[in-house]
Design a protein around this nucleic acid. Structure first.
Lengths: 197, 197
DNA sequence: TATGAATGTAAGTAATTACTTGCATAGAAA
DNA sequence: TTTCTATGCAAGTAATTACTTACATTCATA
């Protein structure tokens, strides 16, 4: 793909994420991309098309990255695996929050976008669920709904990444430390050992 | 406050949430509110002012509702308390997702909005943390970072509510059942009893 | 009945904005 | 050198949109 197109798409991601699709102007996107506004229309014909390109091209990338991140070493102990997995996902989110923000925000008004968000979530949930199923079969994990576990894990990662884009660190604490704390809770729960018989 | 103003603000919440601030038109807001567009300007002078009114007036309401929801019965067992609390929060979110969506989406471009989102999150996190601290002191809970626990709890609720606005139920499962599953994990963790010594 | 406040209606204004056209330029390749 | 392709630049168009003004209507209350 084209270098100029890439610059435009990268700019569009930033602008869409911060201004929303409706608030973003093609002028501003061109400015951020460092190209002439006309070039942007020559490449993509319309603003709607830019959104489409941003979403579809990044769908591939996100799915690919997620797929590599989701290579979970099944024989490792759960805590280590989940920490590795979580850090990977957090990294993806940190680099790609903007796209997730666009997907979630724009999905509400654009069914085309909603479908893609759905496919991404579906894939990640399926992969993580599958891992949990395996651990249950091997008796390493209690028998619970694997989807629930996957969603619990994911929701922490997604929501924290999202909040970090808006509110300050002193309310949310340090990224990595907080995540370690989360994994600890996720794995062992919050109850005092002696309380649970 | 005024009945017409209220109609306008309610309409504005819907339109801002689905179209984003930039994508929302005053014409559309007026249409949804069932009033004339001019009335809307007579009451609020500008579109920006409508957003401000939506946010500030709802800040009070949200804080008040949250405050009543957050009346946690400290002597009850943790599981019951958290289930009650979670259901309350989920209900608030179900009724007020739109406002949370506006807060999160608009907070990225509007510092005024970000500040308010921050104050809401801060208050909720503080209240839940406080409850956890109490339970730790009484030995009902392991000693962990109370903020981490609060954020874990909250992120599930917020993120699930948000996703439910965009993607279909068959990926996310039934609202209440899933939440019960989450509480179970949150409280007991995912490890098999015999595995944790 | 008369008055006044709140709303509707119609029309318009000025700015913005997505998108177009025509031409100039620069650089790579032939 | 010539040709071709990608981009910039200047100008413009048509639609939308936030916001205004002037006047008509409704309806409760004095």
């Amino acid at each position: 793909m084209d270098e100029t197109e890439q610059k435009i798409l990268n700019a569009a991601i930033k602008v869409f994420a911060s201004e929303g699709y409706g608030g973003a102007t093609t002028q501003r996107i061109a400015e951020v991309a460092g190209v002439n506004e006309v070039t942007l229309f020559r490449k993509f014909q319309s603003k709607e098309n830019i959104l489409r390109a941003v979403i579809t091209r990044n769908r591939e990338i996100i799915l690919k990255i997620l797929d590599s991140v989701l290579q979970i070493e099944k024989e490792e102990d759960i805590e280590t695996s989940l920490r590795t997995l979580g850090r990977g996902l957090l990294k993806v989110m940190r680099e790609r929050v903007n796209i997730m923000v666009i997907l979630i925000a724009e999905g509400r008004r654009n069914p085309e976008v909603a479908v893609i968000l759905e496919s991404v979530i579906k894939m990640v949930v399926a992969r993580i669920s599958e891992y949990f199923e395996y651990q249950m079969k091997n008796g390493k994990m209690r028998i619970i709904n694997s989807r629930t576990a996957a969603l619990t894990f994911l929701s922490y990662i997604c929501h924290m990444s999202q909040l970090r884009g808006v509110i300050s660190e002193d309310i949310l604490g340090n990224d990595e430390e907080e995540f370690d704390g989360f994994v600890d809770i996720f794995i062992k729960g919050i109850l005092n050992a002696e309380e649970k018989k």
